[in-house]
């Protein structure tokens, strides 16, 4: 969902200019702000979830095996996860291109 979705006529504008669909910012991909992304070394990972709780962008979620994985559609590449990882299991890798 891009800002162009705001391009609607006054007659179709929602009542009161309210946003009726909760949490629809999730359609907006902040991942392309990124210049680096986290890569987790599962050998070192202890599944403590620090990366998940300290992520300002709600990018991390837990996999079935209990590891935490960052959703690249949201990860802005801030590097908090790598910095806070108690086992130094996360490395920030520059984006290519």
């Amino acid at each position: 969902m891009a800002i162009s979705d705001a391009i609607i006529g006054w007659k179709t504008l929602p009542f009161g200019c309210h946003v009726m669909e909760p949490g629809n910012s999730a359609k907006f991909r902040t991942g392309d702000w990124r210049s680096q992304h986290p890569v987790t070394d599962r050998e070192k990972c202890i599944k403590c979830g620090m990366c998940w709780i300290f992520c300002p962008d709600m990018a991390y979620s837990q996999t079935l095996e209990g590891y935490y994985e960052a959703n690249m559609e949201y990860c802005k590449g801030c590097g908090i996860c790598a910095h806070e990882c108690p086992k130094d299991a996360i490395t920030m890798v520059p984006e290519e291109g």
Partner: peptide
């Protein structure tokens, strides 16, 4: 506790906070 942290995110991703924003992190918590 570390064991019962809610998984739910009442504040959704896709917000426009700066990279590494400590404020939105606090708000998320």
């Amino acid at each position: 506790s570390a064991k019962n942290l809610p998984k739910d995110e009442p504040l959704a991703p896709g917000h426009r906070a700066c990279q590494g924003c400590g404020e939105v992190l606090a708000l998320r918590m």
